[in-house]
Nucleic acid binder design. Structure first.
Lengths: 215, 215, 215, 215
DNA sequence: AATGAATGAGAGTTCATTCAT
DNA sequence: GATGAATGAACTCTCATTCAT
């Protein structure tokens, strides 16, 4: 079953009418917010900054977003559904597993690259609407993990992936490696920053165990 | 040559007399701050919270820390030097490589576990003393990466680790895996959250390449 | 050449858009500040007091004044330009000298009376933006001294004022007498608090020396 | 009747035992306070500054002064009694009037010069213990005015001073001129900053009216 | 519908004063 | 008697949010 944005949103119940949610103006504002959030930390960005950057009045934001958190979350979350469906579509394709995995990882990477913000949020939830937000956010994270796990499961079925480790665990580890590559290897040679390298590295570890299983 | 806290501190000029830096009261305050920072984000924790939690007056904090950033940074950084020297000592020991690596990873894990804050900070710098802080912090991160890289280099020399990937890259990847294990595998079976599993997984990928090198 | 507020302001760089500087709200706030500053000392007046007295919210002040110092200085300085041009116009008029001097002194007195604050500030600079402020303030003071000196110079040319003492010195002394009259003679008979008396007193001393000059 | 410090003190009732009031330690502290107050404004000087400057502990000050105001006031007031009795003694001497007046003015000037602080305070009362302090302070000011007035009265009796203006008024005006000379004529030629000049100037105005009286 | 002036709760920080040592 | 670590009330200033226009 597919979890969509609509579902998670309900967790922190936006006070904004539905038809405004994805209106062009809302998108214009989220794009401004994205630019700003990508550069600074949540609390360093003021709503005034967002206004100026989006070229709208201060009150306008509050027509489309119930508060700063709502703006932040919806900005962060925008596009996750797309990513998830991309991943899901890769899982079902008839190409060789490695090619599908490469594309999946590339989708993840480009998603991350274009919105480093998400990466931050995925581990450090900034909102003070804690309970609602964390629940919602953690769902989102899981939907990505699970979509990538599906790709790996397919590989597992084809004998390309070891079976002694749950694909959710492997999916998490792979995401962790991608994350590290994107964030921490800024000084390393270009070779080791390419997605191909991460996959090669990952597959050595996640490929079928030749002799013994991990227990 | 070893870089110590004394060195990095100079980057954001502490305004507090040296003898106060590590006094019991300062530690008491940092412990309170650690508890709080571990749970919330930088801007959500008020100095008042820290006071209450540490059981001291508001002004007292400012005897030991020049401002909120100073408290934050010194709390985050406390113990890194110890970790680094632990790692360095592991690198030189005469035991089997795998045993040394296990201990090194355990040091890292328990360090992280006891101070999840560090993990957050390692990727999301919250201070507004941006330049000074980031510089300082990135140095710290590098000192951990590099200490773990030394352990791996030793393994490399013994033929336990592939030589086509720089040990700094491997060190980063290993830290990323440890991080993922600690943070994201909260739902996974206990088996896969153990350090032994991460090492087994890592060594499959980082062990010597049987046939071809990565290029 | 005339020095105007615009010029001096540049010394402590106003952070507020020019059109807000003289808006009715800014004036309303400065009037409240004036009332309060006239009664108490700089540090005894809190911004909260000013808010309450002006009947505006706390944040509103900061839309019009970059900080407390800015409010203080601009409140103190308001109207100096007017005073100076009044004085200058008196200097050029075709009336008898004594009449012009009387009007000049009255301008000064009513300026001082309506804003005793200025008097305080003229000798005790309270701001902690010391360098910028003192420089700026001292300029203002000089502009008043110099404008009054111009009136005296005209009298000097007409033989009404002794020529052995620079008119700047005489101007300072006259201002000192006016100041004393306004501030310290609160217990004296009404007669001696009138501007006419100060002028009579001053002119005895500053009138042309009948026999010998001071050296 | 002579008003002494003891008398005025009672107005804001010091909580410090009398034998401590003039102890060497109290004087040591007041000297430090004097140095500091002379340079900065009341609120810019912290008790910590005074401690450091006096070389005593923070608590020690509170043994000798009931609070910051008490320290400030007693520091400011120290020596006034001396000045007053100097002035009084000048009044009774048998020398020519002008010589006595010169000495009196010199006493005032050197008193002011050595403690510019007093000058500030004479017009801007900084304490927040308003009622008590202002009353006390204003008494002090009056005692100086009145002592100088006595000197002038003597001159009046000798026909050296006009009789149509109360000597208290003249005393205030003279003090105002001395003040201006000391504070505002910093740029003027040395000639006009000398006490002799002020007296010459003052006596022209305050000397006996040749023809008509002021009414 | 859109604006941005106004708001005020709440943040970080200072410093006069106290009191255990 | 002297100290200075500890205190917390009070300060200035910020910024998310509202609402009259």
């Amino acid at each position: 079953m597919e979890l969509t944005s609509q579902f998670y949103y309900s967790l922190w119940e936006p006070k904004v009418r539905n038809e405004l949610k994805e209106s062009p103006k809302a998108i214009q504002i989220m794009q401004a917010a994205e630019r700003l959030f990508a550069g600074g930390r949540f609390h360093e960005i003021t709503m005034e900054d967002v206004c100026r950057c989006a070229g709208v009045g201060k009150g306008t934001i509050y027509r489309y977003f119930s508060d700063k958190d709502d703006l932040f979350i919806r900005t962060a979350v925008r596009g996750i559904d797309e990513l998830v469906s991309q991943l899901k579509s890769h899982a079902g394709e008839k190409r060789p597993f490695e090619s599908r995995l490469l594309d999946a990882c590339r989708s993840v990477c480009s998603f991350f690259k274009s919105r480093r913000l998400i990466l931050h949020m995925m581990q450090s939830q900034n909102s003070h609407k804690r309970s609602a937000f964390c629940a919602g956010w953690s769902q989102y994270r899981k939907s990505i993990v699970s979509a990538l796990a599906d790709v790996l499961s397919a590989g597992s079925a084809e004998g390309m992936i070891r079976k002694d480790v749950p694909s959710n665990v492997l999916s998490n580890l792979l995401l962790g490696l991608l994350r590290t590559t994107a964030r921490d290897l800024t000084d390393a040679a270009e070779t080791f920053r390419r997605t191909e390298f991460v996959i090669e590295f990952f597959l050595r570890a996640a490929g079928p165990a030749p002799d013994k299983e991990f227990s």
